[in-house]
């Protein structure tokens, strides 16, 4: 199929990762909010992992391969 699945996966996880990372940074120190998660800033952790995964997917997708061969 013409569409490389890595592009939508990469985009979605990058966007969701960004949202959660920013949320994690903004709410850092909010002990009340993270009490139920045993004090872990779980938004920040999940956000960073998703961001890294999303970027990895994007960089290994057709999007970047095509550009390289054109150069």
């Amino acid at each position: 199929m013409g569409l490389d699945i890595k592009i939508p996966i990469g985009l979605m996880f990058t966007i969701l990762g960004l949202i959660l990372t920013i949320l994690g940074i903004v709410t850092a120190g909010d002990t009340e909010m993270y009490e139920q998660a045993l004090g872990y800033n779980i938004n920040l952790f999940s956000g960073i992992i998703m961001l890294v995964f999303g970027c990895f997917m994007l960089f290994t997708s057709q999007l970047f391969k095509k550009k390289k061969t054109e150069e």
């Binding site: 949320l23 709410t27 139920q36 998660a37 779980i42 938004n43």
Partner: peptide, 11 residues
């Protein structure tokens, strides 16, 4: 419900 705060809960 028990462990996930807003954000990861949506996830």
């Amino acid at each position: 419900l028990r462990y996930m705060p807003v954000g990861v809960l949506g996830l």
